[in-house]
Design a protein around this nucleic acid. Structure first.
Lengths: 102, 102
DNA sequence: AAGTTATTTAGCAAGGATGCTAAATGTCCC
DNA sequence: GGGACATTTAGCATCCTTGCTAAATAACTT
């Protein structure tokens, strides 16, 4: 039993890696990116065979992970990819780089 | 319904991202890496609070994902990290790089 | 060969994730 | 303001994952 556990960006890894663990969510990110970085929820959902509501949940997971943000525009919501957040993954990978090999 | 789905290295992404989705497994990789790239199952398990068997399963998942390999040495098994396999993650991230910005 | 050490496999319970349908919310248009 | 459109929230069933304990395998030791 550890005295006290710190949870600063530890949770961030958890959220991001968790979000990327599902093929549909990875595909959502790619889809939005190749569409210029932003799409409405409807456009995104249309790409998938899933029910609308299922995609909505995936979007929520991605947003909670910080990989997506949304803004309202009238009755539609525009989701925007947060490329910067993906660097967290790169950061984690960097632990395994040649140089750091200690 | 798509005509036919190809699954070449698609499954590889699935396996690797799936494996990295669990904090314990990410920690196993870091542990082995910072221990010089190889450790026995026992040494790895000793690092965790989990029951031995639970860690064994994590090792299996990581191995199935290609992130670890093992070789027998007497009655112990030495697990070795496959850094190269992590590049698959880097490859995926590369889709979002500035340059490739379609 | 019997016992000890190192590790995996099997089987089960609990919790979480995923996908669906139905209902709710919020906005636009006549 | 009433209906159509865009999207989310709720609730439920199913499946997958994780963690555990018990049992099995396999290699060393005496």
């Amino acid at each position: 039993m550890a005295q006290r556990e710190q949870k600063p960006r530890v949770d961030a890894y958890e959220l991001v890696f968790g979000a990327l663990a599902h093929a549909a969510r990875r595909r959502v990110l790619l889809t939005i990116y190749f569409n210029g970085g932003a799409m409405t929820a409807g456009e995104i959902a249309a790409v998938f065979e899933h029910a609308w509501q299922t995609t909505t949940r995936h979007l929520r997971v991605l947003e909670k992970a910080g990989l997506l943000t949304h803004e309202k525009q009238g009755r539609m919501r525009i989701y925007r990819i947060q490329r910067k957040r993906l660097e967290l993954v790169r950061d984690w990978l960097a632990h395994f780089s040649e140089n750091t090999k200690h």
